[in-house]
Design a protein around this nucleic acid. Structure first.
Length: 688
DNA sequence: ATAGGGTTAG
């Protein structure tokens, strides 16, 4: 018997994912250091060699060595002690250059002041001082003056580097205009730009949201005698991606590949981001696989881009796998990792996973942002986690950071949670708190409040909240109107007229249809159905089903079963409801998931009628008949459709019984169904 | 840390 390739390959593939990215030496090497002293000696002398051979590193160390010898302290230049001294003296110089950079950032942008600050560095400045100082600056104006200072005082052997770090400062300021001027100045002074110059300007253009400019700069690169290298390609791939030119980005990737550039992890991360932004999530995973096939080790950027993409894709399980892979490869999650995970889990309502990440961030002392807090709160609202939401909200408020304080999104989620769980006074309290914090109620908040008051049977407050919308200069959207309509399904008959007035104002067509029902108007044949069709046909798919469900519920409440059936029929015709009834050779089924209670009862009524017709016409029943209510216990209501249906079926004496092994299914046999339908018919005859 | 890519999102 031949074994299939996949069955032999997959275990290998698995072990590959989880074990192989880091070379095993990385783990065993430190052990060797401890166990064998001779290896330790070798290691240190290698380190020293590299430091000595690096002229940049030895610059300050030499000076320190001189001062050491002045104090009559001889240190063997090859000893560990010497390399430690070198490092310390370098650190010291570096720290003072950082301080100068900081003073320059807050210095007045006039030559005199800037030069004064720089005078603190003394006369013995070297070229690297200029590079380090400028590299750590953020203020564009003083950086340009500082560069001028260094150009005057130093004989620069690699002036292009000084220009390149200055261009970085301009990039930090997203100042492409100035960067272009500095480039011209370079040319005037006879300094030849290199790939670093171009990649910096190109990424500057990209960050300024001017991807066309980036492309322009890329295209003029050859005329300066430069051939793009791997980094320049990487920046350009990103720029093309940002410009929405995915094809160009990918063809550049191909070119980089055929020209045998070493494509590194950062470029792969860029490609993953491009695919992710384009919504091609399988493309992201393919890039990742290709990267691994080329033996490029993923880094944090790759993992974070992938996690972000899987979050967008709403594939939390894939995010979870990738995260596990990342951890088993020895990476520590960064802030960005956690953020992507919270988003991926939160949007997909993986509440336990999301809250676990949140806890871990807190334990590590990582600060969340408002966006992350709001993501968590929106998730809590989705799944009905009231207590957790309150805790998170309290923590936001007690946070020392300005950037974590609640905003209107925060309050809105919280008000939604209280509204859905029927906590009227908490919702009102939070609304007041929101206004005290300086936020006007927005349409989301008002939508929640309408639901809140509706659920509590406070019709006058619903009307008051409705009026508030226009007082605030807002107009009803489909969601808001949908919630208002939903309130009607829960309102006592004598109060309905107050709400139909609101509905007529929010959506005249909808108001007309509802008024028809509430007033139980006598109609010309087909008039109601015609108006309902027109209404539902223009509604967007987002709310079509909600509208239709609510309208049917209202009919059922008002005991207008015929119109309920008409509405269900409209819903089926317009494909608002699909696959409600299905027939296979062995089973006929009624699928009620995503139907409201009223709609489900109406559908049952129609289905039973159909069964009767089948019976009358002598059609053969299948061995099983089933009703699927879905097991979904609704998050904010104790009893799901299944529970209500169970008692309803009992009332009807229907022989359907909940299947023990299939949650949400009520099943019966051909024999039981037939005898039930026949006894019903007999009763009807008697009644007539 | 010591000249170029990436990063915080709804």
């Amino acid at each position: 018997m031949a074994s299939t390739p996949s069955s032999t390959l997959s275990p290998l593939y698995e072990s590959n994912i989880f074990c192989n990215f880091n070379s095993p030496q990385k783990f065993t090497f430190p052990l060797k250091l401890h166990s064998k002293s001779c290896i330790r000696t070798t290691q240190v002398s290698l380190q020293e060699q590299s430091q000595v051979s690096n002229p940049n590193n030895s610059q300050y160390s030499d000076r320190k060595a001189v001062s050491s010898s002045k104090s009559k302290l001889w240190v063997n230049p090859k000893s560990p002690r010497a390399s430690e001294l070198k490092r310390k003296s370098y650190d010291f110089r570096y720290a003072s250059l950082m301080k100068v950079a900081e003073s320059l950032d807050s210095c007045k942008p006039v030559e005199e002041d800037v030069f004064n600050v720089l005078a603190d560095l003394g006369d013995k400045i070297v070229e690297q001082d200029a590079v380090v100082t400028l590299n750590n600056m953020t203020n564009a104006e003083t950086a340009l003056l500082a560069m001028k200072y260094f150009q005057q005082r130093l004989k620069l052997s690699k002036e292009v580097i000084v220009y390149n770090v200055t261009l970085k400062v301009l990039r930090k300021n997203k100042d492409l205009d100035r960067a272009e001027k500095v480039f011209d100045e370079m040319l005037e002074r006879g300094v030849k730009p290199d790939n670093v110059t171009f990649s910096t300007i190109i990424s500057c253009a990209r960050q300024c949201n001017l991807p066309e400019k980036a492309i322009e700069w890329f295209e003029k690169l050859p005329s300066f005698g430069c051939e793009p290298d791997d980094v320049t390609y990487s920046v350009m791939i990103d720029a093309y991606g940002k410009a929405g030119n995915v094809d160009m980005a990918l063809s550049l990737y191909d070119r980089a590949r055929t020209e045998k550039w070493r494509i590194d992890a950062v470029t792969f991360a860029t490609l993953i981001r491009i695919y992710g932004a384009a919504g091609n999530f399988d493309g992201c995973l393919n890039v990742y696989e290709e990267m691994k096939a080329l033996s490029v080790k993923p880094n944090m950027t790759v993992y974070n881009s992938l996690l972000d993409a899987m979050g967008r894709a709403r594939r939390p399980w894939q995010a979870k796998n990738i995260y596990g892979e990342m951890l088993s490869n020895g990476f520590q999650p960064s802030w960005g990792t956690y953020a992507s995970l919270i988003r991926a889990y939160g949007r997909a309502r993986y509440s336990e996973d999301a809250l676990k990440i949140y806890k871990e961030m807190k334990e590590k002392g990582l600060e969340l942002s408002v966006v992350l807090y709001n993501t968590l709160l929106a998730m809590c609202a989705d799944v009905g986690l009231t207590d957790e939401a309150v805790n998170i909200f309290e923590e936001m408020k007690s946070s020392a950071s300005e950037t974590c304080q609640p905003d209107s999104w925060t309050y809105s989620s919280l008000i939604t949670i209280f509204s859905c769980s029927g906590k009227v006074s908490e919702a009102e309290f939070t609304l007041n708190e929101m206004m005290e914090a300086g936020f006007e109620p927005n349409i989301f908040v008002l939508t929640s409040l309408i639901q809140c008051y509706g659920k509590a049977g406070r019709t006058d407050d619903v009307v008051r909240t409705f009026d508030r919308l226009s007082d605030l200069g807002l107009s009803a959207d489909e969601r808001f109107t949908g919630c208002l309509l939903n309130v009607l399904t829960q309102t006592a008959k004598e109060d309905l007229h107050k709400l139909t007035i609101c509905l007529e104002r929010a959506n005249p067509k909808l108001g007309y249809v509802v008024k028809f029902l509430v007033d139980d108007e006598v109609e010309e044949k087909g008039a109601f159905k015609k108006h309902a069709t027109e209404l539902l046909d223009c509604a967007t798919t987002d709310v079509q089903k909600a509208y239709c469900n609510c309208l049917i519920d209202i009919c059922v409440n008002l005991n207008q079963l015929e119109r309920a059936c008409e509405l269900l029929d409209v819903g089926l015709t317009l494909n608002i409801y699909t696959d409600i009834m299905s027939r296979t050779a062995t089973q006929w089924s009624l699928h009620l998931k995503s139907l409201s209670l009223g709609a489900a009862l109406t559908a049952l009524h129609i289905w039973v009628n159909d069964l009767n017709k089948a019976l009358e016409s002598g059609e053969e029943f299948p061995s099983l008949l089933g009703i699927n209510t879905g097991h979904g216990k609704h998050k904010y209501s104790e009893k799901g459709l299944a529970g209500v249906f169970e008692s309803h079926l009992k009332e009807l004496n229907a022989p359907f019984h909940e299947a023990p092994d299939k949650a949400g299914w009520f099943l019966t046999t051909k024999v039981a169904a037939t005898s039930w339908l026949e006894s019903r018919r007999a009763q009807e005859v008697v009644a007539a």
